[in-house]
Design a protein around this nucleic acid. Structure first.
Lengths: 107, 107
DNA sequence: TATATTTGCAACCAATTGGTTTCGCAAATA
DNA sequence: TATTTGCGAAACCAATTGGTTGCAAATATA
């Protein structure tokens, strides 16, 4: 059962969980209260998120607090990097076109 | 059958296709040549990518050229925005802590 | 015109998914 | 000690997934 970050964020509930615990660590029950699902379903999502290291857990008595591993989120950011450079290049090319047009207009 | 960008990029083959056609438009057969799958499998992936508007097609005779809709990729970038602000804040808070420590050391 | 190529689409299949219910364990509380 | 609470894990289920094969339509080529 291989997990990766992209598969983890594919599910909308999981994305909502991520947003929720990004601000502050929460227990599975507390997370479930925010959705229309059972604790068990949330627990399953948390397992998937844990398996791909998107989430950290901290035990406190019988409660387990889950929080987001922000650095892991940067993996997605890193993947986008390649396209960012492309779309910036496209804009630069467009800039060139516009500059040339402008130049021709002034002549 | 609802599609969204996050589900589209969940599949590794689909991510590879995206990277491939980001540089230049390609036909399904040409794309399939780069992978260990059949043309039909690629075609199915392209359908999914088209359904969520991640991909544009341009017919040329009997060939169809697929290219990446770069602006749609920005949707993912936009979702990451919220976390980017959090991790920048965390760094700022860390900076504050370091500054305070430094200040106390100097006293 | 007959044939080959490029493609999308439907039918089908095994594997995976997100969800539920049920269970057992450990920690808190009566 | 007995009960409640918080949790993960297993068993199960319907729906979806990624993949296959087979077909028909349209374009190109002989």
């Amino acid at each position: 059962m291989r997990r990766d970050v992209f598969q983890a964020i594919a599910d909308p509930t999981r994305r909502a969980i991520i947003t929720l615990i990004a601000v502050q660590a929460m227990t599975p029950n507390a997370i479930a209260d925010n959705f229309n699902t059972t604790r068990q379903a949330v627990s399953k999502h948390l397992r998937i998120l844990t398996e791909c290291a998107l989430v950290k857990q901290e035990q406190q008595g019988r409660e387990i607090y889950y929080s987001l591993a922000l650095d892991k989120m940067k993996e997605i950011d890193h993947w986008l990097e390649q396209f960012r450079s492309i779309w910036e290049n496209r804009f630069n090319q467009l800039d060139q076109v516009l500059l040339t047009l402008q130049k021709n207009e002034n002549e």
